[in-house]
Simulated scan of single mutants.
Amino acid sequence: MRNRPIATGSKTRARLTAALLSACLPFAAHAVEPEIRTDDVERFYALYNAADGHPSVAQLDEYLAQGSPSLKEFAQLRRVTGERIAAQIAADPAMYRNARQCLALLPKVKRRVATALRKLGELYPQSTFPPVAIVVGRGKPVGITNPSGVTVGLEALCAADFMNPDPEDRFVRVIAHEYAHIQQPFAALDLPEGDPRVNVLSMSLTEGGAEFVAELIAGGVANPGLAGRVRGQEQAVGEAFLREQDKTDFSQWMFNYKKGSDAPYDQGYWVGYRIARAYYRRADDKRAALAEILRMPDPKAFLTQSGWTPGQ
């Protein structure tokens, strides 16, 4: 399940195979803070401002051609072209104007991410820390994560205020969530649609586990709004989850956010987080528990050992 798009509404995450573009270096106590690349977004906004908010397709193609390896990979995998960026700017100019507010937050985001990843390295010494790249794309997806790193679309994540109204917290905790995925062997697998291992339970524990790790190292989950969508329905959602845990169609449980709708979405994230939290709280050895949450060798056994029950 490589090159996983950071979804805010896609029906499924793409499973594309890509070579590693950079080494994943182990984190050490003496290491410099994790690299967060912002040169692409800075080049974009220099161009955007010079063009008074209306860069041409040719200028945007040049922006992509001169981009970092992360931007070029992002563009190739997610079909980002100068023409598509120009069309999105025309369709939603406010998205790109407003994203400059998030650009101004990046120095603080970088410092907080560094602190969070140091904590992850202390709690899970096997962690690897490839770069984070902040880029500008065509409004979606929010980004992609694979072993070569995390690439985030500034304009897309800045606009995703339904996840968290505080943009600084949103960036920090989404990056922390995605770094958890980098540590998860299951998230790196290239499994086909319909594989029995890719089911409601395994996907929910993968996403919910990453949410728990984000809370542990960065002070909160990436999408705190999910809890409000489930409030009052905890028992029913949990019981439905147990009934459907083996289904390979998980479209009702995640990646089903619809803009403007008040309907519940990504409930698998919420249930998986609750299961991971229950497992961690029950464990005497917290470091070993975190390792199990990340490695997840047997989802069924993990569910049983967590002690979680519907309604918790």
Rank of each mutant, 00 (worst) to 15 (best):
E73A: 07
A240V: 01
E215T: 00
A91N: 11
T206H: 09
P141Y: 07
K140I: 01
L154F: 05
A46T: 05
M1H: 15
I217Y: 00
P130A: 09
A156P: 01
L117Q: 10
Y96K: 06
L103I: 07
A176M: 06
V237P: 15
F44Q: 11
L21T: 14
G209K: 06
T304K: 14
G149H: 08
K286H: 12
E234K: 04
R277E: 15
P34T: 09
V221W: 12
D266H: 03
A50Y: 03
A91P: 07
T17L: 15
R79G: 03
P196W: 06
S56N: 03
K300W: 06
P141M: 06
P192D: 02
R173V: 00
G220R: 02
K72Q: 14
A28C: 12
L25F: 09
D285G: 01
R15V: 14
G121M: 01
V198H: 00
P141D: 07
R282H: 14
Q101A: 14
Q101M: 01
L103M: 09
F186Q: 00
L157I: 12
D298W: 10
Q126A: 10
A156G: 00
K119S: 10
V32P: 13
R277Y: 12
A176F: 05
Y279L: 10
D92C: 02
A291F: 04
A289Q: 11
L106W: 08
A51E: 11
G208A: 11
L290G: 08
R97I: 01
L191E: 06
S10E: 15
A86M: 03
P224Y: 07
P196C: 06
G208H: 10
R287T: 05
L20Q: 14
T81K: 04
Y48K: 02
A19T: 09
A86R: 14
P264G: 13
D195E: 05
I6V: 13
P264W: 14
D246M: 14
A291C: 03
Q233H: 15
G149N: 09
I144L: 07
I144N: 04
L157E: 08
A29Q: 13
R37G: 06
D195T: 00
A28Y: 11
Y96V: 00
K72T: 05
V135A: 07
P299S: 02
T81S: 13
T145P: 06
R138M: 04
Y280C: 07
G53D: 12
P125F: 07
Q66L: 13
E239P: 03
A263G: 04
D285Q: 00
R4M: 15
L290E: 10
S148N: 12
R281S: 14
A19G: 11
A23G: 11
E239H: 08
E122R: 02
D92H: 10
Q59T: 03
V41S: 08
I6A: 01
G219Y: 11
S68Q: 04
A133V: 08
A214E: 08
G307W: 08
M203H: 07
G225D: 04
D92M: 04
G194M: 01
T248M: 08
F302R: 06
Q183S: 08
M203G: 12
E62V: 08
G194W: 00
V136A: 10
N164T: 06
A240M: 11
M296D: 08
R243H: 12
A50V: 03
R37W: 11
Q252M: 13
D52A: 15
